[in-house]
Design a protein around this nucleic acid. Structure first.
Lengths: 146, 146
DNA sequence: TTTATACTCTACTAATATAATAGAGATAAT
DNA sequence: ATTATCTCTATTATATTAGTAGAGTATAAA
């Protein structure tokens, strides 16, 4: 698993939307500011998240983005896989891999499977609600105003 | 962490050398055959492994490669880090990262740290001796002749 | 109805990493 | 000398990543 900038921006944007879940929509400009992402790049990221069913949007003068589901129903793992692909550390676990013969395959493959499982167990047991409460516990909600 | 073909070849070559640890050196051609790696590419990989202190080589007519240390002293994690870089899933844990502001930093960083730790705990507790014995247990040593 | 604002969509580009390929050179055994 | 084998540097093709650009669409408010 490798988190790219695209993935990092996506997670931070969703976390920001989770922090504002009870409020109105958040504009992409505000998201870009608070996540330190280039606005036009973040647009693409959010478009992807919309197509993935993670966010909803509203166009026009009071437009913006909001989460499509409550933060408690969005697991970190879902987002990571959607944006940055499988968590497996090597392509031989992902399907079309032919870079190894059977002789060494199983013994190394087994290691990568263990790594993937350990990774999944972490990121599939964290929701954005968890992240929000960790954030609030740590610094206080007032910090997150625009 | 992402295992590249380079890393995959390196691990398989070392595993092959571990299987032949008590014997003579192994030529790059034999290694290339058994690991299904392009010979010239594997040359570079082995050169790297030599500089990293994982293998020794001998030139000339009966030349080849051998492990520089017993298989029990080579951990998978060492090799992975040497060949494919840090196991951390995101560059913010690797030093010069500036892609996040403090507001979201800690809470996501903490997740990636947990992933990196879980990964390390797996790959730093497997030696090439372990892999060899798993391999032998599974298929019998006779399979590994040229 | 016009205008301003904000999301939508597609195309393009620069930089970097990855996975090789190529070939000349050095060393050791026969 | 010859042959086999490792050594080293340069080059290349492809894919990925990160970002930029710009025209288009929807909505609220003046």
């Amino acid at each position: 698993m490798r988190i790219t900038y695209r993935g990092d921006y996506a997670l931070k944007a969703l976390l920001d939307l989770a922090l504002h879940y009870d409020e109105n929509v958040v504009t992409i400009n505000d998201l870009a500011k608070r996540t330190d992402a280039p606005t036009k790049f973040l647009e693409q990221v959010l478009l992807g998240l919309k197509r993935g069913g993670f966010v909803e949007s509203r166009r026009g003068k009071v437009g913006g983005y909001r989460l499509a589901k409550p933060p408690s129903e969005i697991k970190l793992g879902y987002v990571v896989r959607f944006v940055d692909g499988p968590v497996e550390p090597i392509s031989c676990l992902e399907g079309g891999y032919s870079g190894c013969r059977d002789i060494y395959r199983c013994v190394l493959k087994n290691v990568w499977e263990r790594v993937a499982k350990a990774t999944s167990e972490i990121i599939d047991n964290i929701t954005f609600e968890d992240l929000v409460s960790q954030l609030k516990k740590k610094q206080g909600a007032v910090v997150y105003a625009i």
